[in-house]
Write a protein that binds this DNA or RNA. Structure first.
Lengths: 207, 207
DNA sequence: GGCGGTATCTAAGCAATGTCCAGATCGGAT
DNA sequence: ATCCGATCTGGACATTGCTTAGATACCGCC
């Protein structure tokens, strides 16, 4: 019964809880060296095991990446829930959008892995599929904003549109060519809000 | 002076015009086998040269990809110009958006390479930067739609917002989870238009 | 027309990667 | 105590990006 001691010390017999250690290592590499450095062997190295060890916990490299992406989606959901809790009701949509984009800017490498997995699998990891997903959160927000005066279809479409805008902004706002514009408009967050306010077309003026 | 004959025949002395052949080969592989199969060596193989040959025309693998991406952006611009020329004025914005997304769906692998390059380089390939870019086309469209009643700042912001929406939709609309919704709404194109029409928020109703 | 220079291409090789396999090691159920 | 199955290692293989040394064939120049 030396499991506890082994976990706390240096070299457990069989390692105790690799899988989780691998995920932690992967995220660490991602944040430290970017997505291109995220090789299976590097993850194993970081976790202090042989290059073949991960294959007992993940079928594939892509399965490891999927697990990392899942973790990312959960973090994103946490961020959105916080934004949801602390924003004024009348600017909830903008607040969620800004929170989404700022998450992607704070974790660029992770966001990239998340999205790559989402594309490759043709569907998002489970967390974005269930009843407590961030997507449902957005729908609830929009439903409330409309005061019930909206069909489920329009709700779904509006939520998708919001997601499109947020994701597009997350990727486009990193382009260097918009740096002068950002400054002219008063900083990063002001830029995000401004773009989000122009989604409707040419009519809407700044709030 | 056997250049012409050599170009038409099987094995030119030095190959005639590699670089272009490499680009063609890259696009071919991309469309046939997807982005993960696009290795430098595979491109060289497809073009019938040694694995080291491409290095006399491209400094890097990434430089090859950049050239491919540039070609993609040019094709995209062509598509947008066509849509611009053949759409009704009052639904120009939606038409451009649909054309954008349909291009990305018709060339998924190419679109992915284009966007990867755009992200890695922090700025888009040149073609999207000059005065004849697709981005300027969108701005012109929006300027016309507003009848001159819009500031340059609002114009720029609206163009960016449109781009965000189009890109987001391009990536999100491929998710399998929206398939039932697509059918419920009347097919792919109807789905695209519907989402684009909901960009403004919960107010707008379908046209 | 011959000559050297230069751009282009090949051959061979290096380190790194994803993946598999044979065996070693260890925990836990019987 | 013993065996089983899960976990980990060491070694190997094919493939990849990239480099270097040397071959090949076009070019301008005399």
């Amino acid at each position: 019964m030396k499991t506890q001691a082994a976990l706390a010390e240096s070299k457990p017999y069989h390692h105790g809880d690799l899988r989780r250690a691998l995920l932690r290592a992967a995220v660490a590499i991602l944040e430290r060296e970017g997505p291109s450095a995220l090789s299976l062997r590097a993850v194993a190295r970081e976790a202090g095991v042989s290059p073949a060890a991960p294959y007992h916990h993940f079928k594939d490299k892509s399965e490891l990446l999927n697990a990392v992406a899942l973790e990312g989606f959960e973090r994103l959901k946490t961020v959105l829930v916080e934004a949801f809790a602390s924003a004024r009701k009348d600017e909830m949509r903008s607040a969620l959008g800004v929170a989404y984009v700022e998450f992607s800017q704070a974790n660029p490498a992770l966001y990239r892995v998340m999205w790559d997995c989402a594309r490759n699998g043709e569907k998002l990891p489970e967390s974005s599929h269930d009843k407590h997903s961030a997507f449902e959160l957005v729908k609830d927000t929009l439903r409330e904003a409309a005061g019930g005066q909206i069909s489920e279809l329009d709700l779904e479409l509006t939520a998708i549109a919001s997601w499109c805008a947020a994701h597009g902004l997350a990727e486009i706002s990193t382009f260097a060519q918009f740096k002068p514009l950002k400054e002219a408009v008063g900083g990063d967050r002001a830029f995000l809000k401004a773009v989000l306010n122009h989604l409707g077309g040419v009519h809407r003026t700044a709030s």
